[in-house]
Amino acid sequence: MKSLFTAVFMCLMGLAIANNPTSGGYQVGDVATDFSLKNIDGKFVSLSDFKDAKGYIVVFTCNTCPYAVMYEDRIKALHDKYADQGYPVIAINPNDPEVKEGDSWDAMKVRAKEKGFDFPYLFDAGQMVFPQYGATKTPHVYVLDSDKVVKYIGAIDDNPQDATAVGDKYVEAAVESLKMGKSPDPSLTKAIGCSIKVKA
């Protein structure tokens, strides 16, 4: 009887979580836990590896989502602009390659080489990290400060389709705020994106 109750309870919990993707995950102000994920070069990368970081631009992205692809060059540009200033981009592919073949670790290596990614592009093996962050889609950005406090969650900018027609560069503005010791405003934005691919 107890096990039946537990089973029903677990089912209900599962439904509640499935129906409410905003439950769980970080809010602005939460401290992000570190991770250790395999990079495209086979080495494992953690936030704590960046000893001199003043902050982190954590980007959940992938090879296959058209929105993510449209942002590849802009993600690279963020790293090129801010890594030297102490705010590296750390990209994480959260998709299950058994659901989305083009997001395998091997495919990530190929894509990173094609695009000349010079930032870590990590594979969320077992999909343990993206649920902690509460990422729901690609691309989905979390800007952290040096203490790994989440300072900004959301989109890279306000125009996915056309990089030349961007009005607000949200992530850049967030990093600039951190550089001045201020809290980003807005600290939360939304964008269309591809749902993160998990097994049904």
Binding site: A155, K190, I192, G193, C194, S195
Partner: peptide
């Protein structure tokens, strides 16, 4: 409408923007 940040919440505030 090319500015999803301005309209996603107007559909529903709980929507993260992921589709479907």
């Amino acid at each position: 409408d090319p500015k999803p940040n301005d309209w996603i919440d107007r559909v529903d505030p709980s929507w993260s923007g992921a589709i479907p």
